[in-house]
């Protein structure tokens, strides 16, 4: 399972047959294992890694540091769920350290995100403060270094 996940993490589009060969097992076994991982929620989705710098569709990303008041009975759970429910929100993490929720938001421009923060996020019950950080340049995302011309420098030796 660990090896299978490793392979998929690197390239989720490899077909079951190639994976079966790599893991020295059958195609059916790979299909069954993936189905199980999906059913158990271990694999909760697949998506392409899109480099938005390469397409001319307006796209802005921001990280919002949220300080909130936890509830006596449910702690951070309730507010975290409320924040997660917004379509604009891509990810929500509870953090240790100087603030509570780390929220990644996407929109088509700065104004989009500013309005979302001012008119929706900041108004939620329990939100004490927000600090919004816009992402300026992406160098590496999801483990991949972006906008780098990869040339194989090997091959200059005779062995």
């Amino acid at each position: 399972m660990e090896q299978l996940l490793k392979i998929l993490e690197k390239n989720a589009r490899l077909d079951d047959k190639a994976i079966a060969v790599m893991l020295d097992t059958t195609e059916a076994a790979v299909a069954a294992e993936i189905e199980k991982l999906e059913k158990d929620g271990v694999i909760y989705g697949y998506r392409p890694l899109i480099n938005h710098d390469k397409i001319h569709v307006p796209f802005v990303e921001a990280i919002i540091e949220l300080r909130v008041t936890p509830r006596k009975d449910t702690g951070f759970e309730e507010i975290a769920r409320k924040v997660s429910a917004f379509d604009e929100v891509d990810s929500v993490y509870l953090m240790s350290g100087g603030y509570d929720l780390h929220v990644r938001v996407t929109g088509k421009d700065f104004r989009d995100i500013a309005l979302f923060v001012a008119q929706r996020l900041a108004l939620l019950d329990g939100v004490l403060s927000t600090a919004t950080h816009f992402i300026l340049t992406r160098y590496k995302a999801h483990g991949v270094i972006l906008n780098e011309n990869h040339t194989d420098e090997r091959g200059n030796i005779s062995l």
Binding site: D152, R154, G155, N156, I157, S158, L159
Partner: peptide, 21 residues
Amino acid sequence: IRRFFDIANEMDNVISLGVGE
């Protein structure tokens, strides 16, 4: 081994399975 790399290096869009490294 050298000869083919010399030709390959002059061409574009070559993918190699030649390197022993």
